[in-house]
Design a protein around this nucleic acid. Structure first.
Lengths: 82, 82
DNA sequence: AATAATTATACCCTTACGGGTACAAAGATA
DNA sequence: TATCTTTGTACCCGTAAGGGTATAATTATT
């Protein structure tokens, strides 16, 4: 029942990590399914700031998400699962 | 009074273009204020898919926005001004 | 119409992204 | 403990991103 608040700005890494584990994927599995390299997934989950948008979108697409402009300091609510 | 619907997914370019003109900036002014090159602003407003997130965020920051994961097919409402 | 301002396209160049790979570190399982 | 899996860090390298600049094309503005 507990929900987790996360800052959309700072937690793209946490978003990916959470979604990935929700699906029971390893980094390698996610990389293969997204069509990116394993190193990229690791850089993404380690919050490398200079990642290319199209590559990030290839990953987010698997979760039904994509990169878009969101207001700063925006907080979102997300269930622990799904 | 008319509001414009835009798909967050496809219209990062339109978002930037609209916000820029709302502030009365030229591409060059926006580039200088954001600390990126003029060419980058043009590629951004022309929807180049492989732009680097940190550069895009330097621009969105001026508008009080940033890149974040948004659900696919999400539609947002935005006033013509502000 | 002409002129000025803004935007689009193209070229060269330096930098670094991203892939691949290997190895180390951390977690899990028995 | 040892063993296996998963994740993190480091290296080399091809290639594309992004800046600068110049020139065309487009769009005001008069």
């Amino acid at each position: 029942m507990q929900k987790k608040t996360f800052n959309t700005t700072l937690s793209l890494r946490d978003f990916v990590k959470t979604k990935r584990k929700d699906l029971g994927f390893t980094q390698k599995m996610l990389a293969d399914k997204a069509g990116v390299g394993l190193r990229f997934i690791r850089e993404l989950e380690n919050a490398k700031p200079s990642l290319q948008m199209n590559k990030v979108n290839q990953v987010l697409l698997l979760f039904g998400y994509e990169l878009g402009p969101v207001p700063l300091n925006r907080k979102k609510m997300m269930d622990e699962k799904s």
